[in-house]
């Protein structure tokens, strides 16, 4: 079992997302994350999908995706040089003054952008790889147990130039 990445060009039509996600659930493929947005051509959307599977299942996933009429192109991103980033919001609530000081210090050290705050609550933005964001979730969950709220966007990826 291994974590895999796929970049998918699809028709920007109603129902295509349902078709793709339905393929994963219907065939019991283990989907980790899926992001979708339009491309420079507004009739085409691009998805970044991550999943965990063995080699044989992954081959099937790619073939099944290719088989869908709405899928224009399947690119295996697993072992190629790509830039991958995920946006994540971390909100920390019910902070004391001391907490706030600590929070701002953490944000500075880990290069997180504080985008909103008041006396007791702060909102930070992290644009990092999925793995680094995982680390932040753990870090903040430890430091501010039961007071954090996390929203994650899922990874988007694009081929590296060099």
């Amino acid at each position: 079992m291994k974590k895999r990445w796929i970049s998918l060009y699809v028709e920007n039509d109603i129902g295509v997302l349902a078709r793709i996600s339905g393929l994963f659930s219907g065939k019991s493929y283990n989907l980790n994350s899926l992001t979708v947005g339009t491309t420079e051509d507004e009739t085409i959307s691009r998805m970044t999908i991550s999943l965990t599977s063995d080699d044989k299942t992954f081959e099937q996933v790619k073939k099944q995706l290719n088989r869908s009429i709405e899928v224009i192109k399947v690119i295996d991103f697993t072992d190629v040089a790509v830039h991958r980033k995920e946006i994540m919001f971390i909100k920390v609530k019910n902070c004391t003054f001391q907490d706030m000081t600590e929070l701002f210090r953490m944000a500075q050290i880990f290069n997180l952008k504080v985008i909103d705050y008041n006396k007791t609550t702060a909102l930070m933005e992290s644009i990092n790889t999925e793995k680094i964001n995982n680390d932040f979730v753990r870090l903040f969950a430890n430091a501010f147990s039961n007071r954090i709220e996390i929203v994650r966007g899922g990874s988007v990826g694009i081929e590296a130039i060099n």
């Binding site: 109603i14 129902g15 349902a18 339905g22 393929l23 219907g26 009429i69």
Partner: peptide
Amino acid sequence: IVGITRSICKYAVTVR
């Protein structure tokens, strides 16, 4: 019906 048949046909579409 497009949603219902999505996984059992080759292609399904609503004309909009």
